[in-house]
Amino acid sequence: MVRRRIVSRVAETLCAGAVLLALVPLALILFYVLRQGIGALNIAFFTEMPKPVGEAGGGMANAIVGTLILIGIAALFAVPIGCVCGIHLAEYPDTKFSSVVRFAADVMNGVPSIVVGIFAYGIVVLPVKRFSAIAGGIALGLLMLPIVVRTTEELLRLVPAGLREGALALGATRGRAVFTVIVPAALPGILTGILVAIARVAGETAPLLFTSFNNRFWSTNLGQPIASLTVQVFSYAISPYEDWHRQAWAGAFLLVAMILTLSILARISVRGLEKMNRP
């Protein structure tokens, strides 16, 4: 009796300790980025272009817009393909083709992002001999794709089989059942998956270095190099100028805030989905 209680108490303590240990670095990072970044954050950071070296002030307006454009291209490319693939995997889980697709997606998920960058460089940048927003978007899209595929599949499978049977029993064809009942049932979850995928790629730097490159000027031309927060932070951080360092911190803070917001949004919508699917 007593022994059991002691063992239980010790185990609990160990678990709590491990959790704390894991949380400490996270908290430190957040705290440090917040402390360093918040000071440099001001309206100008969001609205102004980078100033030339030596001039104080300026902002990252072009990089913020660039990041949004890159993510937009990535999503435009990865979401439709990923969802269709996911639906296929969920609907025909046992075919040979499906297991190949699933395996491919898992492998892609594990490929280092820099390798994806090189791939995009090889197929998009080299032929036209120019860095471009399109190339960066495709690189990010390739990183998003496996996440979207797998979350879509998993979430569709979470939809109770009874819903499909209910639809079929009312005279729905298989396709009708999928698109009018099963996908809508899983939609909040799928959107969550997409948010998670976006959060994952929004922080990528490596694949952008030799695809979208960087641009010190305002550009929304998809055929031209484009600035992005991550690359901007990277180049400012390795520069020798104190002012740029401060701006890099602000950019880093903005990135963290963005990703955190996306993650929290995803969390909330997962909770919503669970409520929906648990009658």
Binding site: P160, G162, L163, A169, L170, P184, A185, P279
Partner: peptide
């Protein structure tokens, strides 16, 4: 076509994640 003439009710109630109205109207709409 057959399943439209032969309705089915299942062991576990399986309403669609839709409104009460849309649940009942589902078969009609499709």
């Amino acid at each position: 076509e057959l399943r439209r003439r032969v309705g089915m009710v299942f062991q576990k109630s399986n309403p669609f994640p839709k409104s009460i109205f849309d649940n009942v109207a589902y078969g009609l709409k499709i």
